[in-house]
């Protein structure tokens, strides 16, 4: 979690970070990472920026795809008001394995402060809801 200031408002970014090492090279690890059932059940991901994503009950869209290196996406549960961003990065270790680094961020308080519509509103309404968000976060 980070704190920041925007005008007089203090905003909060919720963030969760995890890391594990897999005994396989990034190319192989990428295949397992993108075969996304480990993320929570039956999974369909259109692996292109802006592609649709459905994992278990969650729905969202893909933000970045760099095969063997990085996958980021936004998702939310049907009952959630807002989506969160997940970034998974893969780094080759000296032993030839892969370090998997996951960050899930809920930066919506910040987006609210700068006046950008939250993804909970107009979610699934085409690319217009996605572009500004991706830009704002980048």
């Amino acid at each position: 979690m980070e704190l920041g200031k925007a005008g007089k408002e203090t905003f909060v970014v919720h963030e969760v970070e995890r890391e594990i090492e897999l005994p396989a090279p990034p190319g192989e690890a990428w295949e397992s990472v993108t075969d996304a059932e480990w993320l929570g059940g039956e999974a369909e991901i259109d692996l292109v920026p802006g592609g649709d994503l459905r994992i278990g009950e969650r729905e969202g869209w893909v933000e970045e795809v760099e095969p063997g290196e990085r996958l980021s996406f936004w998702w939310r549960l049907p009952e959630d008001q807002v989506a969160t961003r997940v970034e998974i990065t893969l780094t080759e270790t000296e032993e030839g394995g892969t370090l998997i680094h996951v960050v899930e961020t809920s930066p919506l308080a910040m987006l609210d402060v700068v006046g950008i519509p939250l993804p909970g509103r107009g979610f699934g309404g085409g690319t217009s809801a996605r572009g500004p968000l991706a830009l704002a976060y980048a």
């Binding site: 995890r18 594990i20 897999l22 396989a24 090279p25 397992s32 480990w38 030839g96 998997i100 996951v102």
Partner: peptide, 18 residues
Amino acid sequence: WDTRLATLRSQFSTRQPK
């Protein structure tokens, strides 16, 4: 994430690093 990563890790549990 702890649960998910444990699931992902378990897919590799029987393999050796190359």
